[in-house]
Amino acid sequence: MSKVTGWLKKQNIPGIVYGSVLIFLFFSIIEKKFFTPYNVMLIARNSCILLTVSIGMTMAVLIGQVDLSVGSVMSVSAVMVKNGVPLAAALMAAFGAAALFGLVNGILIAVLKVDYWITTFATMSIGAGLALVISDGSTVPISSKFLDFLGNGKVCGVYFLIVLTIVLTVLILFLLKRSKLGYDVYSIGGSENVARLSGLDVNRTRMMVYLISSLIAALAGILITGMTNSASPIVGSEYSFNALAAVVIGGTSLNGGKGGVAGTVFGTVLLRIIASGLAMLGVPATWQKVIQGLIIVVIIVADVSSEKKKDVNGLRRIYAND
């Protein structure tokens, strides 16, 4: 037992994990239908899209920045899928557009040193607008066996989507832990100055992060198109905020350099558990959003204040991210 707790301590597991488990137990106790194989599978499945986007966002936050444009990139890639257009061409267009967004973000932020909030906010707006332009503002049903399999198909009784998301998560986890890119992401997030003085190519790493973040968002857009069998120009509109929330709730510090994908998995699942639980308890949809928003803000506030306590210089700052 002590071995287990010792191991847990060493893993540096954020409080979020215990939080998720507690809230899960809470809903299981007050609502019988909550802890059933069907509902657990549903929660897992509903977490997939958000988790995919959040993984990309995690990398941006780890490097000390944020990518607000992921939601719009999702929308843009979703509407690239059209009936009558060969799927391969549509997918290429989707990922191509995403790569373009990633490059624009990366060049503006890393090379031209434009503020990352304003840059990704602008590309977010541009993306949202372009998605409407491409789709002419309408959601269309899509019938593609391949996409349907991605979103709704099952392998050995488990949704393929879940398998795919797990594979992607493990892949990025591995990338962050063992590759040069991942190592540099943590170093730059820890201190850009130190990274630069130690000879790291800060600009290139930043650009890579925004590129990866965009490409992953495009994948999420494709997946959700498959899941809903329709291409909607506003499908991603709330994902930027929710992904950022999932990352921060998952314990990745907004100051960069601390945290990782593992926390994000729990952050995402926690958000989805809360959504599922509230829905089951019959809370109206409008209230669900408010409650989720409140929970997110409270957790962010708690996170920032605990960070600040540790930071002796915290007193001197007005903003957390200066």
């Binding site: 820890g190 201190s191 130190v194 350099g257």
Partner: peptide
């Protein structure tokens, strides 16, 4: 010029 959140080896 060190990263406080990383190990000595890192």
């Amino acid at each position: 010029n060190l990263l406080p959140e990383r190990t000595i080896a890192q």
